[in-house]
């Protein structure tokens, strides 16, 4: 047989390891989804099939409020983060290399590197002072905090898209009488759109899922869906939590599938 270099797939036990890894990744999720249809009160003992916990979660006003709050924050934060990220990406790629460019990449991607708990504590202290100074107690703090840590997630796909884009297209637009605004509107933006949508969806999912920073920054009565679920752990645990998790999972899967399809289409 012809030698084709090192191939991981040929190592002994490769198939077994792969299966074990997939089981470790997905079995807990399947269990979670399965037990969301459990008729019994227990998250561990199967008591027959039922949609009961979904109905209960649907009727739960606290869940409803937390969901609405989560969505408001995720939509606003991903919107802000994507706008900032798109501008940052344009500023860092549509020009000649400049001194300090790497430093700027690092600064933009800071939330990926600094431990989240550190940012959370810092924000708690910082916002506490602002709350005292202004008296404002609303969702603005959460939206701002989420926007900040969502920026790198929106920035990376947009930058990747821009870097793959031929600069001569913008030169050609200028040559064909387009002003800078027209060039952006008719050439740059349409070509960048898949990157922007991908970045926005990634930011949305990241915001929706956040616990640590939210837990530290939120004021009383500002539970998002993840922090509400965390709170439930301390009380009685019922399959209702499985039902909510499954709902969140479904939303994420839909978004990530859309993300995948959008980024693949243009290849």
């Amino acid at each position: 047989m012809a030698e084709r270099g090192f191939q991981v797939a040929r190592l002994p036990g490769f198939a077994t390891t792969a299966v074990l890894v997939f089981i470790a990744l997905y079995l807990p999720i399947f269990t979670l989804v399965a037990y969301s249809f459990n008729a019994s009160q227990s998250v561990a003992v199967w008591g027959g099939f039922s949609f009961g916990w979904y109905e209960k979660a649907w009727a739960n006003t606290q869940v409803k409020e937390a969901t609405v709050r989560s969505l408001i924050i995720a939509v606003s934060a991903s919107g802000i983060a994507t706008t900032v990220a798109a501008l940052a990406a344009l500023g860092t790629t549509r020009r000649a290399r400049f001194k300090g460019q790497t430093a700027i990449y690092v600064m933009i991607n800071q939330p990926l590197m600094v431990p989240e708990i550190v940012t959370a504590v810092a924000l708690l202290i910082f916002f506490a002072q602002i709350k005292v100074a202004t008296g404002y107690q609303g969702l603005g703090y959460l939206i701002l905090a989420h926007s900040a840590f969502c920026i790198p997630f929106a920035y990376l796909p947009i930058r990747a898209r821009l870097e793959g884009m031929d600069l001569s297209l913008e030169t050609a637009a200028a040559d064909l009488y387009a002003s800078s605004w027209q060039t952006f509107r008719h050439v740059t933006l349409p070509l960048l759109l898949p990157g922007i949508i991908a970045g926005a969806m990634l930011a949305f999912v990241i915001s929706l899922d956040d616990v640590v920073i939210t837990e530290f920054v939120k004021s009383g009565g500002q539970d998002t869906l993840p922090t509400y679920m965390l709170g439930q752990l301390r009380r009685q645990l019922t399959p209702e939590i499985n039902a909510i998790s499954t709902g969140l999972l479904a939303l994420t899967v839909v978004l990530l599938t859309a993300f995948f399809l959008l980024t693949r289409k243009k290849e």
Binding site: D166, A172, A174, Y177, V187
Partner: peptide, 19 residues
């Protein structure tokens, strides 16, 4: 600026708008 010159260019890479 280029957009105010009545001069047009055929680029080596063509630079056609893919969208």
């Amino acid at each position: 600026p280029p957009n105010r010159r009545p001069v047009n260019t055929v680029f080596q890479s063509y630079a056609l708008f893919p969208h």
